[in-house]
């Protein structure tokens, strides 16, 4: 079980969090033309890297904040955790 440092609450066990996928995906802006290809990329296509991955988690049983976690998908090492509005 991972040990994730919530930037708001501190170190907590994984079972307090829920996973939210790739944190680098940007939703296309509202009311702007989006090509089929770009929309499909946003909705469906995700990279599945072996190694460092910046991903979203929500501290669902804690402060309910969505946070960013930089994690190695192979070793589970967590390098850094960030608030939703912070960039690496």
């Amino acid at each position: 079980m991972l040990y994730i440092k919530c930037p708001h609450c501190g170190l907590r066990s994984q079972n307090e969090f829920s996973y939210g996928g790739d944190a680098t995906v940007k939703r296309p802006e509202l009311n702007k033309e989006v090509s089929d290809q770009n929309w499909d990329n946003f909705v469906y296509l995700r990279k599945s890297p072996r190694g460092k991955h910046l991903e979203l988690w929500q501290h669902i049983s804690g402060c309910r904040q969505w946070i960013k976690v930089e994690r190695d998908t192979l070793t589970h090492e967590i390098f850094k955790t960030l608030k939703a509005n912070e960039e690496l």
Partner: peptide, 13 residues
């Protein structure tokens, strides 16, 4: 609730 929080915290802060 998580869905609403996602959009408020990450997409349209």
């Amino acid at each position: 609730l998580s869905h609403l929080e996602y959009y408020l915290q990450l997409v349209w802060p």
